[in-house]
Design a protein around this nucleic acid. Structure first.
Lengths: 338, 338
DNA sequence: CCTTGGCACTCACCGCGGGCGAGTGCCAGC
DNA sequence: GCTGGCACTCGCCCGCGGTGAGTGCCAAGG
C-alpha cells in the first residue's frame, strides 16, 4: 500500500509530465508542487513508485514518466473529472442545437469533441437495436424489388434493397407494411425478431416466400456489429502526438480506418458510466500507445450508443473526461428533443 | 524550346527522384539511364533546366529535384498513363463486384484506390443532380411530419425529414406521391425543379402550403455542393509522405477533414478526362505540397461523380493515373449493372 | 523509522571541428 | 556541341569534451 504522500508524488508527476511532455525529476517536482518535503525524500518515493511499476525512467539518470499502470492509478484514485465551465457548457449546447438532422448532430458532435479535447473524436450513431421503431416502410421499386426503410425514434434512417424472387403484389406489400408497423411501431428494435416471427403465416402461400425474404432482410439489418455506424474526426490532432510520431501515428491512423476495430473498441467499454482504457489495456495493438475515453449517451436513461476520444496516453485525463461527459450529456438532450 | 535530350534528362530526373526520394546528381543519372552522354553534358542540361525553372537544388552542391513546373511538363509531355496489368484488372473487378449496395461500392472503391496507389483516396458519391430519378417516396411519420426519400438509378438514397405546418392528409400525400413520380421518374434530377414547378396548383387550397413545403424541401436537397457526399480512406499512407512530414502532414489532414475543401478540389477538375493538379496548382494552401489525380466516373457515357487520390507531388504519376483510370472504369461498370 | 543534506556518478544533450564525398560550375580541348 | 579535368562548395557524419539535470547511496538528525 502506498502512503498518501507517495500518491501525491505520483499525481504531481502525472500532472507535470502531461503539461511538459518531458520526464520529471525530483527537484523540479518539489519546486512546482507544495509537497512539503525535500527532493531527497521525493527521490525515495520515486524509487518506491518505480519499484511498484507506476513510473519508469526512459534511461538512467533522466526523470521519470508515468507508466500505463501509473496513469491507471491516477485516473482511478487521484483525479476528479473536471467539470466544464458555464461558458463552455453554453457553447456546447449552442453548437449542438443548430443541427438539422441526425447526420448533422453526429457530425457536429465529432467536430466539437475533437476541438474541445484536441484529440481524435469517435461518435457512434444511435444503435438500431437499442432504439425504438418509429416506422418501417416498404417501397416497391420494381415488381420483384423492394426497398426496406427503417426509421428510429432517434432519427436514424437505414435503408436496404431487397430482391424478391417472385413479384410482390402492391396489395400484399401494403398488407405487409400495415401488419409490420402495427406489430413493431413503438417497440424496441431488439424485440423485432420475435415480434415478426409468425408473420408469414398470415399471408397466402404464394406470397409467403417474398414475405420471408423481406423479413429476413429486416433481421439481417439488425444484426449487431453490422448495423453500427460511426463517424470520426480530428485526425489532424494526431500530429501533436509527440516528437517521434512517425512510428506512433501510423498504426493509429490504420486502426482508425478500420471501423471494425473502433466498434470493438467502443464495444469493450462499459455500457454505463465512463470508461478509460489506457495504453496496453486496449486490445488492438496499434492503439497500445493511446488512451481511449468513452461514454454511453442516450435520449433517456438508457444509452443508445457511445462516443469518445482517442489520444496519447499522456493526456489531460480530468479535462478530457469532463469534455466527453459533457458532450455526451448534451447530445442525449438533443436526441431526446427531436 | 528544350531539346529532345533535355526533356529526356528531365524525365530521368523525375523518375529517379520519385524512386529514391533523394536529389539526383549528374553522375548517378548517366549511370542509371542510357543517355549516351557524359555527366558533364548532363550538367549543362541540368543548368538549362534549372534556368527554365523545371528543376531546383535544395541547397548548393546537392542534386536536383523537380519543381512543380517540372512535374507538370513530365505529366503533360513525357509520361504515358501506365495501364494496369491483366491480373491487376481482374483483381479490381473481383473486389468491386462483391459489393452489395452503393455504400459498399464506394467503400470498396476507396479502399481499393488507397491500396493500389498507396495514397489517400477520395471517392465522391454519384451526384444526385446528374443522376436519374428512380423513385421519390413520401412517408407520413406523424400528422404534420413527412419523410422524403429520393432514390437514384445509381442506387443512391437520400432522405430528409420535413415538418409541415399543417397536418397533411394521407390521401393528399398519396396523391402528391403519385403525381410527383409520374412526372419525375426516369428524368434527371437536374430537371426536377422545372418539372414540379406548377404542381401545387393541382391541389386544393388547404393542401397547397404543405405541398409547397415538401417541394421546396425536395429542391433544397438537390442544391449542388450541398447534395454531394464523399468518402476518403488511406490516410495512413500519409505517413510515408516524407521524412520531415510533421509539418507537411498536418495541413493535409486538416484539409482532408473539410468536406467542402475536397468537394471544391474535385469540382475544379475537368468533367471529362483525367485531371492532375500539381503542388501549388491546388487552390487550397494546405495541399500545396500534394498532387491530386482525379477523374470522372459514370455508368454510361456521362460522368456522375469523380474520384481520385491525393499524394505527395513526388508520386509515380503514370502508375497513379493508370490505377485511378482503371478503378473509375470498373466502378462505372458496376454502377451500370445494378 | 522517516527525513534530510551531501556527494559522487551517470548519461543525454549540445556545440564544435575536421574529414568525407557527392555534386557543381567552369574551362580548355577535341 | 560534347567531353574530361579540376577546383570548389557544402551538407552529412562522427568523435570530442563540457554541461547539467537527475539519480542512488549514505550518514546524520529529528
Amino acid at each position: 500500500m502506498l502512503s498518501e504522500r507517495r500518491l501525491e508524488v505520483l499525481r504531481a508527476i502525472v500532472q507535470d509530465y502531461v503539461g511538459t511532455e518531458e520526464p520529471v525529476g525530483s527537484k523540479a517536482l518539489t519546486e512546482r508542487h507544495r509537497l512539503g518535503v525535500s527532493p531527497a525524500t521525493v527521490r525515495n518515493d520515486m524509487a518506491a513508485l518505480e519499484e511498484e511499476g507506476y513510473i519508469a525512467q526512459p534511461h538512467t539518470s533522466a526523470g521519470r514518466i508515468p507508466t500505463d499502470k501509473g496513469y491507471r492509478l491516477f485516473v482511478d484514485r487521484l483525479a476528479a473529472v473536471k467539470p466544464m465551465t458555464a461558458p463552455e457548457r453554453r457553447a456546447i449546447q449552442n453548437f449542438l442545437e443548430g443541427a438539422v438532422d441526425l447526420d448533422d448532430v453526429v457530425g457536429r458532435t465529432v467536430r466539437l469533441l475533437a476541438q474541445l479535447t484536441r484529440q481524435v473524436a469517435v461518435v457512434q450513431y444511435p444503435s438500431l437495436t437499442r432504439s425504438t421503431v418509429r416506422h418501417v416502410e416498404l417501397l416497391s421499386l420494381a415488381p420483384a424489388r423492394v426497398m426496406l426503410v427503417l426509421i428510429t425514434d432517434t432519427g436514424r434512417v437505414e435503408q436496404r434493397m431487397i430482391d424478391c424472387h417472385a413479384p410482390f403484389g402492391e396489395a400484399s406489400l401494403a398488407d405487409l407494411r400495415a401488419r409490420l408497423n402495427s406489430r413493431v411501431a413503438g417497440r424496441r428494435f431488439a424485440d423485432v425478431p420475435q415480434l415478426v416471427e409468425d408473420l408469414p403465416e398470415a399471408f397466402d402461400v404464394e406470397d409467403r416466400g417474398s414475405v420471408s425474404t423481406v423479413l429476413s432482410a429486416l433481421l439481417e439489418t439488425l444484426v449487431e456489429e453490422r448495423e453500427e455506424r460511426l463517424m470520426i474526426g480530428g485526425t489532424a490532432n494526431l500530429t501533436r502526438f509527440g516528437h517521434d510520431f512517425p512510428l506512433t501515428i501510423r498504426p493509429v491512423l490504420e486502426a482508425l480506418e478500420e471501423q471494425v476495430v473502433l466498434l470493438r473498441l467502443l464495444g469493450e467499454a462499459k455500457d454505463s458510466g465512463m470508461t478509460v482504457r489506457i495504453g496496453h489495456e486496449n486490445a488492438h495493438e496499434g492503439l497500445n500507445s493511446t488512451s481511449v475515453v468513452s461514454v454511453g449517451y442516450g435520449s433517456g436513461g438508457e444509452a443508445v450508443a457511445k462516443l469518445g476520444v482517442v489520444g496519447p496516453t499522456r493526456m489531460d485525463y480530468p479535462g478530457t473526461m469532463g469534455a466527453v461527459r459533457a458532450v455526451a450529456r448534451y447530445v442525449g438532450q438533443i436526441l431526446a428533443e427531436s
